[in-house]
Design a protein around this nucleic acid. Structure first.
Lengths: 152, 152
DNA sequence: TCCTATCGTTGGTACCTACCAAGGAATTTT
DNA sequence: AAAATTCCTTGGTAGGTACCAACGATAGGA
């Protein structure tokens, strides 16, 4: 009759459950859209960090975003060949790279952020503008409580 | 200086990003707490489905919760030995099992739901009662839009 | 100079989620 | 009674995330 889940009310009463469900759906949709741009979620996060904070070493990027340095290698293996970042050895310390956002990277980031807006519209289709703003503000507040230093 | 992520404002402005972050944090905490009861998230979902909808076959449970039947085997391998569910062959069709919540299962589910409440309090520590209620209502509405049949 | 530390990299582990194929047992259909 | 279908199970694949150890290259301190 139906191959769509009909979840128990007990679970729907759990905020963390809803959070997880909607969050996973959003993450999945975002990942699908970014794939069309040839990048992944971590790649987008790195582009955003480079734009917001300026050029950085891979180590700094990893610390900032909470990514293990070894996992950052895969991100760079994506971003560098696509020309979305410029990576050169730091003249002052040739152990480290100096990773910077390229014009192409900036354009891709802009596109990714537009995709994010569309994902939000899709994910929160049932909510009006005010409700979306309220939801965002509440999430921001809750997240700030979780990660004190992440406050903008 | 800091081993805690300092996320780019660009990302914090993305509702889906926050949703995912807070959702993952909640899921993780819930998983940690359930582990102390010897069960996982899927196990809890099955217990909740059995309480809300009554005894069912594994196929029905799978369809209802969106779990692949083969993955449900692992859930049963957890719940049956713990005595949280009673599983017997359906007399009318001995291919299928009739899985029912046991008294121990009901008690464990109650405990799990209490844990869920504590996780909410922890996860949403930065929000007051009204804000938590608002957040829950908004998530419920958004989720209902995503999964039309999941409305309670 | 020698020792130690850091940066990026390779390679590996572990865990979890989600799927799919195939088979035995039981049932229904033809 | 033969064939097709359903239910559960086993086994395998695939993707994603998160770690950790060790190494070459480079740099700084004793």
């Amino acid at each position: 009759m139906s191959d769509v889940p009909q979840l128990p009310p007990s679970l729907l009463g759990i905020t963390a459950f809803l959070l997880s469900k909607v969050g996973i759906a959003g993450r999945r949709r975002m990942g699908d859209r970014l794939r069309a741009h040839g990048i992944g979620l971590w790649d987008m996060a790195v582009l955003a960090a480079l734009r917001d904070f300026g050029p950085a070493s891979q180590r700094e990027l990893g610390a900032r975003l909470g990514i293990d340095p070894s996992d950052l290698v895969a991100v760079m293996d994506t971003l560098v060949p696509l020309g979305l970042v410029d990576r050169e050895r730091d003249p002052d310390d040739r152990r480290r790279y100096r990773v910077a956002l390229s014009p192409e990277g900036r354009a891709t980031l802009d596109a990714a952020l537009r995709e994010a807006g569309e994902v939000r519209d899709d994910l929160l289709a049932a909510l009006d503008e005010d409700e979306r703003a309220t939801l965002h503000a509440l999430l921001r507040k809750a997240y700030a409580g979780l990660e004190p230093r992440a406050q903008a």
